[in-house]
Simulated assay, not measured.
Amino acid sequence: MVQLLMPSLDLSFAALSDKTRRGVLEQLGRADASITSLADTFHMTLTGMKKHIAVLERAGLVVTEKVGRVRTCRLGQRGLEAEAEWIEAHRKLFEARFDALDKIILEMKQEEEDGPADE
């Protein structure tokens, strides 16, 4: 099977598939935060939050920096442009298919309303 997604898209979509990780991105969009404060905000263990942050870091969505004993998280430099482009392309594809389906349904309804063709 041909691999259509770039590895970075695979990592991004995997990272975005989790509600907590999406919440972390929203939180970091407002302000940088320590892993400890994020764990508190999301009512989870420090270990659990570290795992979520690691997934976001692998996808390039989050960057961490350790100063002393505190590891601070911030949004990564790369945005979600490639992911948005992929979604938009597939949205257009589905929209076209649904439009074609609507046309077929309308034609079938019209034929039903017109009744059987006279022979």
Rank of each mutant, 00 (worst) to 15 (best):
M1Y: 07
M1I: 08
V2H: 09
Q3H: 02
L5C: 00
L5G: 00
P7I: 08
S8G: 00
L9S: 08
D10W: 03
S12H: 03
F13W: 10
S17A: 15
Q27M: 13
L28R: 06
L28H: 04
L28F: 06
G29M: 02
A33F: 00
A33I: 07
A33H: 05
S34W: 06
S34D: 05
S37G: 00
S37Q: 12
L38A: 06
D40T: 14
T41F: 12
F42A: 07
F42C: 07
F42W: 07
H43G: 05
T45W: 09
G48A: 15
G48H: 04
G48C: 10
I53K: 01
E57L: 01
A59M: 10
G60N: 09
V63Y: 00
V63M: 06
T64S: 12
G68Y: 04
R71Y: 01
T72R: 11
T72G: 00
C73S: 10
C73Q: 04
R74P: 06
G76M: 03
Q77Y: 03
G79M: 02
L80W: 01
E81Q: 14
E81G: 05
E81H: 12
E83W: 02
I87L: 15
A89H: 12
R91P: 00
E95F: 14
A96F: 06
R97G: 13
R97Y: 01
F98G: 01
D99N: 12
A100H: 08
D102S: 14
I105A: 14
L106C: 09
Q110P: 00
Q110Y: 02
Q110R: 15
E112P: 00
E112R: 13
D114W: 13
D114L: 15
G115T: 09
G115H: 04
P116G: 08
